[in-house]
Design a protein around this nucleic acid. Structure first.
Length: 817
RNA sequence: GCGGAAGUGGCGGAAUUGGCAGACGCGCUAGACUUAGGAUCUAGUGUCUUUCGGCGUGGGGGUUCGAGUCCCCCCUUCCGCACCA
């Protein structure tokens, strides 16, 4: 009977649905392995990227459980987020109903692919049983002083009277009404992740199982920079302007100071200055540009403020400029400009006719002649620098920092690009921040015993007038937990990155009502041994999640500081050389592929086409090829059923030499496939070796009765090894031929051993012949064997041998003249 | 500009430690079976050359008995960061 993938896959899908055979529990007698894949957002449909991500994880999980590990392999839903709320605004569905429907559809799709999840552990972050613990962690952070309120500007639509997410404000226009988006300052909640910046950075060196590019991206993101903060007195304002610099050694060459147009002090320049109008116009001009526009403008734009600052080192008065290239959010938002030794300052000075004073020289007695043609940015020796003249850059920095500290005019300082994590979202579909505002008591955290603060249902989704939570009669008004008086709830909800920062700990104990997870279970299962997901999460998610784990570690909740031992970032699935997108019309639908080729073939090709880290250009023909391979294995079983089921003793010594070779190939393949899955996670080469093994098997003809055992063993080994890749067809064959798929075939070193090998014979480094010789022969013997090869003999004719290079069990190179 | 990764047949890719370049698959060619083939099976498939034999892993140089692999220079592509003081 021809292989009918539809029927076979349906049968096993139903069986697994009924039995949940991948259910696991703590078992201290077994070695654990935690295999985790990034949880999907319930968009309603899975895409090929999910198929790839989860197929990789499934192979590793199934392989290791066959190897006897206790494998935790869970799945869940990153279920909060903006799209559900947008749908509510557009179509009036409640986000919960919308999300739950989507989850239903996608769960079905995942089950169609036959992934070995323990579905009893499924979580969805949008249910109070889960987000209660987000609130719990928030309160813990608040207690530790890690959560605080501060102002930050948000995108604001003046017509809808509401806050917009960046993706709702693309191109500076409101997504609903097309109005011009404004920036507005709002009080919001922040998490002091910068307290952990050094730890997040330093630990990266310990993450040996993480790809270098991800670690490098995180280093850039954290952006640690060592330097100095220097106070410049502002004349006429009776206050200090702090600048951050990494080159304090150049400070004697500072000829002006630049501040960001949105720096706090600018207000005072406008109020008290003579150039108010010019300054205000410049600020307006810069503010009109979006952040992207600002960053793309490479032209230096500046405006003199009319004010002067005093350089604390040489007491020189230098003009203060507003400059478009100075960012308020980095360092102190103000810089000392040394045009002689900084390219940007040089360009700026040239444009606005400011002084250029060199203070660093490449050599000790170097004298600058004439005008500088470009900035000298290298380290060197200080010149024209008062008491510091003659010092080298490195030493000058140290001494000048000491001087600053002594004089109270500054200090050595470290800045980061990493900013505190703003978690407030003015949205409904997220975790309510558990805070109450009382007129008498101020900010009061919701007591732990009152958690969860649940999302109310009596809300309206209008898309205007602020968060839908403001429209709820039951939510907003409450009693102050401290004084019992009238109070209001916080209506901001949390960034969804909070949800995904600790979810893998919740999988460990998903139904716990008393605590986020039990300590005992976490001690057994954590950390995550393998985490698989897209590179797009290299910074945000993977930094937040590392931070959360450190925080939980500090609270004594988890035994590890770092959550993930090994990280695998899989490549994208593209089509026709381009990213799949609706507008290009090149989207490949997983369901359609499964219908055409079956889940097993889709999975197999997905893993075969390229190593996991690389991109895959999806080809239907490739899936067809995978199905062809599976069908050939199936047909081989049917054609050789009698041999496969025969009970001949397994005795290699009685097999024909070809039979022995087949067994040898089997054991070499076991070793190769095991290593490819476990060590390298190069599943494409694992599959290639399985295909090779099958090619050997299908061309083998038993020469005696004992050879039948070779066929039987090889076939059952092949089916076992293929199971993690194509579980449906293998389960069916396992049942038909009585193959135990719960066990990975055991590698036998003796059976894999060669007694002869193919000696490569080179003459002057070029391959001239190949001779089959016994393993372990020495160089002289190899040489005499090599001479038997006609081509080799010919190549040596009339030449004198200079030397012979012999690599045991591999190669002989004869060097001649 | 800075940092990272990569460049191998018509295509996806393999070569894990410096030792047979092109495993495995797709595609293609020929043949078999067939009423038929976009099914299946068999054989072939880097390139030049009639053969012998050359040449060949982006280009150029080097180290070595031997280089896809190591070193230097250059080119190209992709990714990340990017006026970060």
């Amino acid at each position: 009977m021809a292989y009918n993938f539809e029927k076979v896959e349906k049968k096993w899908k139903e069986k697994w649905e009924k039995e949940n055979p991948y259910k696991v529990d703590v078992d201290k007698n077994k070695k654990k392995f935690y295999c985790l894949e990034m949880l999907p957002y319930p968009s309603g449909r899975i895409h090929m990227g999910h198929v790839r991500n989860y197929s990789i994880g499934d192979v590793v999980a199934r392989y290791l459980s066959m190897k006897g590990y206790n494998v935790l392999h869970p799945m869940g839903w990153d279920a909060f987020g903006l799209p559900a709320e947008n749908a509510a605004i557009k179509r009036g569905d409640h986000p919960r109903v919308h999300t739950v429907n989507h989850i239903e559809m996608m769960r079905k799709q995942l089950k169609n692919l036959g992934f070995s999840y323990d579905w009893d552990r499924e979580i969805a972050t949008c249910f109070p049983e889960y987000y209660k613990w987000n609130q719990w962690f928030f309160l813990k952070m608040y207690e530790k002083g890690l959560a605080y309120r501060s102002k930050r500007s948000v995108n604001w639509c003046p017509s809808c009277q509401t806050v917009l997410a960046n993706e709702q404000a693309e191109g500076g226009k409101c997504w609903r009404c097309d109005s011009e988006v404004e920036q507005k300052e709002l009080e919001q909640w922040f998490i002091r992740i910068t307290d952990y910046a050094d730890r997040l950075l330093d630990n990266l060196d310990k993450l040996e199982g993480w790809p270098e590019n991800v670690k490098e991206m995180q280093r850039n993101w954290i952006g640690r920079s060592e330097g100095s903060i220097v106070k410049f007195r502002v004349k006429g304002l009776e206050k200090d302007l702090e600048v951050f610099t990494t080159r304090v050694d150049t400070i004697f060459g500072c000829t002006f100071v630049c501040v960001a147009p949105n720096h706090e002090i600018v207000k005072e320049f406008v109020e008290k200055g003579e150039l108010s109008k010019e300054v205000q116009d410049f600020v307006d001009k810069i503010n009109k540009m979006s952040r992207e526009e600002r960053l793309q403008t490479s032209e230096k734009l500046g405006q003199f403020t009319g004010f002067y600052a005093i350089n604390p080192f040489n007491k020189k008065e230098v003009p203060i400029y507003l400059a478009n290239f100075v960012l308020a959010e980095y360092g102190t938002g103000a810089v000392m400009s040394v045009p002689a030794h900084d390219e940007r300052d040089f360009e700026f000075a040239k444009k606005y006719g400011l002084d250029i004073v060199p203070v660093i020289a490449p050599e000790k007695d170097f004298v600058y002649q004439g005008e500088l043609e470009k900035a000298y940015t290298e380290y060197g020796y200080l010149i024209n620098s008062g008491e510091f003249t003659g010092l080298k850059t490195e030493e000058a920095k140290v001494r000048m920092n000491e001087w600053l500290e002594k004089e109270g005019l500054g200090k050595a300082a470290i800045t980061y690009k990493l900013k505190d994590w703003g978690i407030s979202r003015q949205r409904y579909w997220g975790t309510p921040i558990p805070i109450i505002y009382c007129d008498k008591c101020g900010i009061v955290p919701v007591p732990y015993e009152d958690l969860p603060v649940e999302l109310p249902d009596d809300v309206e989704f209008k898309g205007e007038g602020g968060s839908p939570l403001l429209t709820s009669k039951t939510f907003l008004k409450t009693k102050c937990p401290k004084c019992g008086g009238e109070a209001k709830r916080e209506t901001d909800t949390m960034d969804t990155f909070i949800d995904s920062s600790w979810y893998y700990f919740r999988y460990i104990d998903p139904k716990n009502e008393k605590e986020p997870f039990s300590k005992e279970k976490v001690e057994y299962w954590s950390p995550v041994d393998l985490y698989i997901g897209g590179i797009e999460h290299a910074t945000m998610h993977l930094i937040y999640t590392r931070f959360f784990t450190m925080f939980m570690y500090d609270l004594g909740l988890v035994p590890v500081e770092e959550p993930v031992i090994r990280l695998l970032t899989q490549g994208m699935v593209i089509k026709d050389g381009r990213k799949m997108s609706k507008s290009l019309g090149n989207v490949v639908d997983p369901d359609e592929m499964i219908q055409k080729y079956g889940a097993d073939a889709v999975r197999l090709f997905m893993l075969f086409a390229a190593p996991p880290e690389k991109e895959i250009d999806w080809q239907d023909q490739g899936a067809e090829g995978a199905l062809r391979f599976l069908t050939r294995v199936w047909n081989f079983g049917e054609e050789n059923a009698e041999i496969i089921k025969s009970e001949v003793d397994f005795d290699v010594n009685k097999m024909s030499s070809k039979g022995k070779d087949l067994i040898k190939k089997l054991h070499k393949t076991i070793k190769k496939v095991s290593e490819d899955i476990e060590v390298r996670i190069h599943l494409n080469t694992a599959i290639a070796s399985l295909m090779e093994l099958f090619n050997s098997l299908s061309s083998f003809k038993p020469e005696n009765d004992f050879d039948k055992a070779a066929v039987r063993e090889t076939f059952s080994g092949l089916v076992k090894m293929l199971t993690p890749f194509a579980p449906h067809i293998c389960s069916e064959m396992g049942e038909i031929y009585g193959i135990d798929l719960n066990k990975w075939p055991e590698f036998n070193k003796d059976l894999a051993k060669d007694d002869t090998f193919l000696l490569i014979v080179q003459v002057n480094g070029k391959v001239k012949g190949r001779v089959e010789v016994e393993v372990g022969i020495d160089g002289e013997e190899a040489f005499s064997q090599a001479l038997k090869d006609v081509k080799v003999a010919k190549a040596l004719e009339g030449k004198s041998i200079i030397k012979k290079v012999f690599i045991p069990n591999r190669l002989l190179n004869i060097v001649v003249k």
